[in-house]
């Protein structure tokens, strides 16, 4: 039986961090309250003081704190990103999660003792790319982009000198992460630069009689008839006309869940499992983390994951195993 996989959990606020720790996280990942991370949403994320408190709370309970600094600095203004790395080091974070080559270079040169992970936003999807980051910047773990099947992940793990972390639950990027300009094409605000996809500032809900129209900027992302559950207008989960016919061409408004595939992921040599959702509330964090904790503990002892755990996280949700199953492509 494989070693127990590490459960890496999201926190957008100190309250969520504590909820994740209490629910059984092995590590919690967070971001500073600015454009240096890819969940730069209003009202979210950590001040320096809050991070220090969060690190203390987590470390008291043997839980790690990882700081995502995973956007790409603006040309001419790398300061905030360097400062974020410096501060994460100073505060005692267990690792930083980086995407930009320049930032990774800075971290490796200036804080050799600060563990470095490669963000999914770096889109390192193959052994040569991962080896590059490992050799150039001493990256110890790579968060794999959601483009690989479990079989491909297993093959990859035999060829690289670093740990792999994979997403197991939450919002699903349909495009290769860090390589998508759909949001800035429609709004001018980019995940890579500003750390926001489909920004709330550009979201509008318009009622047309019984029909609810969701828009991002000027772009109609979807129309919902009465009674149809509405979704947040993320462009890649919108409904568009394909040769005149409405279709969820990129992806249905669904989220990733592979709680039933944990044994396969362990078999594939995965080190850590990541739950998406720093923008979600602490109730979500507590519930999902607890379910995965139980499931992981069951896997570690060779027991089947109980239907109860599955139900906790999947109740009322539309979910997919995404690219982990080949036919998703």
């Amino acid at each position: 039986m494989s070693a127990t996989m590490e459960l890496v959990c999201p926190a957008g606020t100190p309250a969520s961090l504590r909820a994740a720790v209490d629910a059984g996280a092995d590590a919690v990942y967070v971001g500073f309250r600015d454009e240096t991370n890819a969940r730069n949403f209003p009202g979210l994320n950590f001040s320096r003081g809050e991070l220090a408190d969060g690190v203390a709370y987590a470390h008291d309970r043997n839980v790690k704190v990882l700081v995502a600094i995973n956007t790409f600095p603006k040309a001419g203004n790398p300061g905030p990103w360097m400062k974020a790395v410096d501060d994460a080091h100073e505060i005692g974070a267990d690792a930083v999660i980086l995407a930009d080559i320049g930032v990774a270079d800075y971290a490796a040169r200036n804080h050799a003792d600060l563990r470095r992970h490669l963000s999914v936003q770096a889109s390192a999807s193959n052994p040569e790319a991962i080896r590059f980051y490992a050799e150039a910047f001493g990256i110890k773990r790579v968060v794999l982009p959601r483009v690989l099947t479990v079989a491909e992940i297993a093959a990859l793990n035999t060829q690289i000198p670093v740990e792999t972390e994979v997403f197991v639950f939450g919002g699903l990027c349909v495009m290769a992460e860090g390589r998508c300009s759909l949001s800035s094409y429609i709004t001018g605000i980019s995940p890579n630069k500003e750390g926001v996809c489909s920004p709330a500032s550009h979201v509008r809900y318009e009622e047309e009689g019984d029909v609810l129209v969701t828009k991002l900027g000027e772009c109609t992302v979807n129309r919902f008839s009465a009674g149809e559950p509405a979704g947040y207008p993320t462009l890649c989960k919108g409904r568009f006309l394909v040769k005149g016919k409405p279709q969820y061409l990129f992806e249905e408004p669904t989220s990733l869940s592979v709680i039933h595939m944990l044994p396969e992921l362990a078999e594939a040599g995965v080190t850590a499992l990541k739950i998406e959702g720093r923008q979600r509330g602490r109730a979500y964090v507590a519930q999902v983390v607890a379910a995965f904790r139980k499931a992981l503990d069951a896997v570690a002892t060779g027991e089947p994951v109980s239907a109860e755990e599955l139900a906790t996280v999947t109740e009322g949700r539309r979910e997919t195993a995404g690219v982990y199953k080949r036919d998703w492509r």
Partner: peptide, 23 residues
């Protein structure tokens, strides 16, 4: 997702409020 809930005006402000209250 809930059609019970109607949000008008500045969605960003609503998201900020939600996050702030949650935190």
């Amino acid at each position: 997702f809930s059609r019970d809930l109607v949000i008008e005006g500045d969605t960003e402000a609503v998201v900020a409020l939600r996050n702030a209250v949650d935190g």
